[in-house]
């Protein structure tokens, strides 16, 4: 499996670690129910899914990857936090 790191390019899966579905975390004061649902109740869909992947053996970026869980097709990938756009000389 190959994952595209927006900074490093397409890389082997072994450079990444997985953290499950990329969901927006509840606010700190959202209460136990919302947090319980966020932490424990996941949809696990058959089809496209947004996931967090960490390019741990590479540049250290957290990447939001859109992947089809049935076909394994990689549909999109983007940095969780874009590199400094304001100071962008790149």
């Amino acid at each position: 499996m190959r994952i595209t790191c927006p900074l490093c390019g397409e890389r082997d899966r072994r450079e990444f670690t997985y953290r499950g579905a990329a969901l927006d975390a509840p606010a700190a004061d959202d209460g136990a129910e919302a947090w319980h649902s966020h932490v424990h109740l996941r949809q696990n869909p058959a089809g496209p899914l947004e996931e967090w992947w960490h390019h741990q053996q590479g540049c250290g970026s957290w990447i939001r990857v859109r992947r089809d869980t049935v076909s394994h097709v990689m549909l999109a990938s983007a940095l969780a936090k874009p590199e400094d756009a304001d100071g962008g000389s790149a």
Partner: peptide, 9 residues
């Protein structure tokens, strides 16, 4: 990895 998750995500 946790600190990177906190600061990036």
């Amino acid at each position: 990895a946790h600190l990177e998750f906190v600061t990036q995500v």
